[in-house]
C-alpha cells in the first residue's frame, strides 16, 4: 500500500513537472500571438503527451525487465522468439496514433497555405545581411525601407555591456496593424535567407530569383522578435526581424507619417545599401540618421 502511494506521488510530481515545463516559455515555444502559432503550440503539447505515454509504456516494460530478468538474480532465460499476434498489434496501434497526429496537422497546413484575400501585402527581401520591406498593397502602400541590426558593434565584441534585446533589435521595425491579415511575399537578393517570427508562427525561406509567400494575423499589439533562419554567410547571426504590431489608429498614424518621408527614405535607403558594402558601422549610423530625418 505504502509502495503504491509513493509510486503515485512520484508519478504525479513527474507529470506536474512536465506540465510546468510545457507552460514556462523558457522550455517551450514563445506565447502564441496568432491563430496558426496557437495551433502549432497546442499540437506540440498534445504530441509531447503522446510521446510521454509511449515513453512510459516502452521503458516501463524495458526497465522492469532490466531490473528483474537478470542473470545475477538467477533468472532463467525463456526461449520465445516471435508472436505474429503481438507483432500485428504493435504495427497497427502506432499507425492509428499517427493518423490521430496527422489529422489536426493537415488542417493547420491547409490554413497556413491559404494566403488569399489579405488586408495588406508586404514584400520582404533578404540581403546579406539585412531585410528590405516594401508595402505593396493595403494601408501604407508605397512605404519602403531597410531593416538592419541596431545592436552596437561594441556589444558584440564585449566592449560594452549587452542590452536587453541584444542581437534582436533593428533600426526600423516592420510595423503592421493588429487583427489584419498580412501577406508576406518573400524573395532574396543574393543567397537564401529565411524570415522567421516564432510568436507569429511563420517561417519561410526567401529564395533569390523566386517568390514565396506566407501570412499572419497578429492577435495583440506588441513587439515580436525573430531571426534569419537559413545560413546566409558571415553575418547570418546578425539579421534579426522585429515586427511591431500597433492598434489600428496608431498604425494609420505611423503609415501616414512614414509615407510623407518615403521619397527621402528611398534615397537614403539606397545610400545605406552602398554603405553596407563599405562597412557595417557606417551603415548603422546612416540608417539612424535616416530615422532621425523622419
Amino acid at each position: 500500500m505504502r509502495n503504491k502511494s509513493v509510486a503515485t506521488l512520484a508519478g504525479m510530481s513527474v507529470l506536474a513537472l512536465y506540465s510546468s515545463m510545457a507552460v514556462g516559455s523558457k522550455y517551450n515555444f514563445p506565447e502564441p500571438q496568432s491563430v496558426i502559432a496557437q495551433d502549432i503550440y497546442d499540437q506540440h503539447i498534445v504530441l509531447l503527451w503522446i510521446c510521454l505515454a509511449i515513453f512510459i509504456g516502452v521503458f516501463g516494460v524495458m526497465f522492469y525487465s532490466v531490473l528483474k530478468h537478470r542473470k545475477s538474480l538467477g533468472y532463467k532465460a525463456a526461449n520465445f522468439h516471435h508472436s505474429t499476434t503481438v507483432e500485428v498489434i504493435w504495427t497497427v496501434i502506432p499507425c492509428l496514433i499517427l493518423v490521430a497526429m496527422a489529422w489536426p496537422a493537415t488542417k493547420t497546413i491547409i490554413a497556413m497555405k491559404d494566403t488569399s484575400s489579405p488586408d495588406m501585402t508586404i514584400k520582404a527581401t533578404g540581403y546579406q545581411w539585412m531585410w528590405g520591406y516594401d508595402y505593396l498593397q493595403g494601408e501604407g502602400e508605397g512605404i519602403s525601407f531597410f531593416s538592419k541590426l541596431s545592436t552596437p558593434r561594441a556589444q558584440l565584441q564585449n566592449r560594452e555591456p549587452k542590452g536587453e534585446n541584444y542581437l534582436l533589435e533593428v533600426d526600423n521595425n516592420l510595423v503592421v496593424p493588429v487583427g489584419k491579415k498580412v501577406r508576406i511575399i518573400l524573395t532574396a537578393n543574393d543567397v537564401i535567407h529565411a524570415w522567421w517570427v516564432p510568436a507569429l508562427g511563420i517561417k519561410q525561406d526567401a529564395i533569390p530569383g523566386f517568390i514565396r509567400d506566407t501570412w499572419f494575423t497578429a492577435d495583440n499589439p506588441g513587439i515580436y522578435r525573430g531571426q534569419c533562419a537559413e545560413l546566409c554567410g558571415k553575418d547570418h547571426g546578425y539579421m534579426p526581424i522585429v515586427v511591431e504590431v500597433l492598434d489600428e489608429a496608431a498604425y494609420a498614424k505611423w503609415a501616414a507619417e512614414k509615407l510623407v518621408g518615403t521619397s527621402s527614405a528611398v534615397n537614403l535607403a539606397a545610400v545605406s545599401t552602398e554603405m553596407a558594402a563599405s562597412g557595417a558601422d557606417e551603415a548603422v549610423e546612416a540608417a539612424e540618421e535616416n530615422s532621425d530625418n523622419n
Binding site: 502549432i40 496537422a105 533562419a229
Partner: peptide, 13 residues
Amino acid sequence: ICAIVPIDIQVQD
C-alpha cells in the same frame, strides 16, 4: 514531432 509540418515550420533550422 519534426515530421509534423506546422511544428517543423517552427523548429526547422
